[in-house]
Design a protein around this nucleic acid. Structure first.
Lengths: 234, 234
DNA sequence: GTGGATTTGTTCGTATGTATC
DNA sequence: AGATACATACGAACAAATCCA
């Protein structure tokens, strides 16, 4: 792990544990650099990443500050459902309705950079927060890249862990598309909503070492979740 | 303007004009640095910003590539409705239903970092793409910071221009929150939808020189727009 | 398949500019 | 006005991943 990553993780932990409450100013970059025994650029790299995530913001001449607003479901470049939910102090969960392997459709093939008809794993289920349903998901993976994923998904609680078991260590979200639809009867039933209630639909494409590894479709119960986008401050 | 900004703008323009089609590799960083007469770090800063916007992605050891997928409405750190729409080759527009100045409510005051009761300007209207309504907006600004904004909004076509006329040169989006609702009769009428149709609701907070300058509430006709989040690749 | 060249990623050092306090 | 602190930009070196002969 790179230096800036470990510094970034350490600061994130300190902020989470309340060592730096919202609104407080962090020590100056030079001081942090001395504390971690690195160059000031390395500290800047670490704080820039945290600013990307929305935890920090910087003001030229003034300092680097801890952001005030806690977020609900941050869509940052590394989207991890379990970790996101755990960080907000709730209990993540998941049920799986179906896991299958079948030829890719046209849209799926294009999204994943495959030829139509090549095999993909598909997992469908419900995401839970504090044991209540918040979202339906349908995730699609190239079978050639992660042949043993179906077994791994059954074995592990989180997608991140299952992918790691298949050798995909650190995938990153390339893009997220957001739209909204109303729930049909089936969706409403699974999410304990009424038909016609609004759903947030996200389509996320994730990459690992230059290859597309996941196309994740998620339908969120809009009344139970707010997606937040932390933006960077350059 | 900083060097990395002008390089970033120039590359963005060349990509938009098709000089570097999707999928092609850009010249190596060293070559770009020589071309622009700057250090390699400066080129990296510029390309990192474009990667944040989703236009580029980099693969260690391989190169920097132009992303394949065009995006619809990118919610990057500098959200500009007019520019976004123009870049996608369509005609942006706007009607204003009301501009008023009134004391801030509690939620507005907190979002903008004001005391409740301090005056804010409020602008409400409809955003158009190719002369068809796509979104309702309600934008709120601290009156003390931009006292002449109401006149400027009437005079200019875009919020960006109006704010610049009031001395706010380069505001940045701090955070965007996304949720979904169904349209009521009034919203449906203004957006030429049916009541009950899904709306995407975004709340954006923007900052300029450490001060909150805008709280923008937008209700998008979900069937007419897809919001996209380009993520960064570190 | 291997080795060398290429290319991006990380880290250091240094200097100057600019906004804030 | 001076000190502090972040922003920008330069240069150098090495690591790590990729690519190609």
């Amino acid at each position: 792990m790179s230096l800036w990553q470990s510094i970034s993780d350490q600061l994130r932990g300190e902020i989470a544990r309340g060592k730096w409450p919202p609104g407080t100013r962090l020590p100056p970059e030079a001081e942090l650099a001395a504390r971690f025994g690195v160059n000031r650029h390395t500290v800047r790299h670490a704080t820039r990443v945290l600013a990307d995530e929305g935890l920090l913001y910087s003001r030229r001449g003034a300092g680097v500050f801890v952001a005030a607003t806690p977020v609900d479901y941050p869509l940052s470049e590394r989207v991890r459902f379990h970790r996101n939910i755990e960080l907000s102090g709730k209990v993540p969960g998941r049920t799986i309705d179906a896991i299958m392997t079948r030829p890719a459709g046209d849209a799926e093939a294009e999204a994943l950079g495959l030829e139509p008809g090549q095999p993909v794993h598909v997992a469908e289920g419900v995401s839970l927060v504090d044991f209540k349903p918040v979202a339906l998901f349908r995730s699609i993976y190239p079978a050639a890249l992660v042949p043993d994923l179906p077994a791994a998904l059954r074995q592990h609680d989180s997608v991140t862990q299952a992918l790691r078991a298949c050798g995909v260590a650190d995938y990153q979200r390339l893009v997220t598309r957001i739209s909204a639809r109303t729930a049909d009867a089936v969706q409403a039933g699974k999410l304990q909503l009424e038909p016609g209630d609004p759903l947030l639909r996200t389509e996320g494409l994730s990459q690992w070492q230059g290859q597309m590894v996941e196309r994740a479709l998620t339908w969120w119960a809009a009344e139970r979740v707010t997606l937040t986008l932390p933006h960077q401050l350059s």
